[in-house]
């Protein structure tokens, strides 16, 4: 059965219409959860609001387990699902730069677009900044190309990297998430409230 578009069960001509509908759901859920507020998002780093942890990990676990069940039931061909290629150095360097961007700007790309949707002017400025940052990367690409393409390891799965079965890894990630939710709630009761 799935994935539908790669196997042309749905005509790829519908791709953009589907993209718009998926984005509508994505944006609606992000905004409803409060991801249009940079002060709420930044709370995860100062331990006064755990919404990011709760929403993010619940979403990861839901989609991960859903994909495993879909695969088990034969509803999707997991080999046709895109797995991000691994380049350890560029992933770390990119992630570190994004981390500084997150704590300075208070948004990530998806949440900034979401905040633009409800009129946050700081998010509009953040989005403009992203445009400049991507432009800078693209112009400096000849200098960065070596690091960007260093050691391509292909679509590596985390359970292979850790030498365990997919089921065991999924179980451990769920257990870790639930533990993190409890720890988060415990910390929340201890720290000084921040009004925002």
């Amino acid at each position: 059965m799935g994935p539908l578009i790669p196997q042309e069960i749905i005509d790829p001509g519908w791709s953009n219409v589907i993209a718009l509908l998926i984005g509508l759901g994505f944006g609606f859920v992000l905004e409803s959860a409060g991801f249009s507020s940079s002060r709420k998002l930044a709370g995860i780093f100062y331990l006064y609001d755990f919404t990011v942890l709760r929403v993010f990990m619940t979403a990861v676990v839901t989609a991960m387990v859903g994909l495993m069940y879909f695969n088990y039931l034969g509803w999707i061909d997991y080999s046709l699902i895109y797995t991000n290629p691994l380049y350890i150095r560029s992933a770390i360097v990119g992630g570190v730069i994004m981390g500084f961007g997150f704590i300075l700007g208070g948004y990530c790309p998806g949440t900034s677009v979401c905040a633009v949707g409800i009129g946050k002017i700081d998010a509009m400025v953040f989005t403009g900044g992203m445009f400049l940052g991507i432009l800078a990367f693209s112009e400096a690409y000849p200098l960065l190309e070596h690091l960007y393409n260093q050691e391509p390891l292909g679509p590596v799965k985390i359970y292979d990297s850790l030498g365990m079965s997919p089921g065991l890894f999924a179980f451990l990630l769920i257990a870790l998430s639930v533990a993190a939710f409890f720890v988060g709630s415990y910390i929340l009761g201890k720290v000084k409230k921040v009004e925002y």
């Binding site: 360097v93 990119g94 994004m98 300075l104 948004y107 900034s112 953040f126 900044g129 400049l132």
Partner: peptide
């Protein structure tokens, strides 16, 4: 923050 995030998202 936006400049850094934009740059980093391409590298990563």
């Amino acid at each position: 923050g936006g400049v850094l995030f934009g740059f980093g998202s391409q590298m990563g």
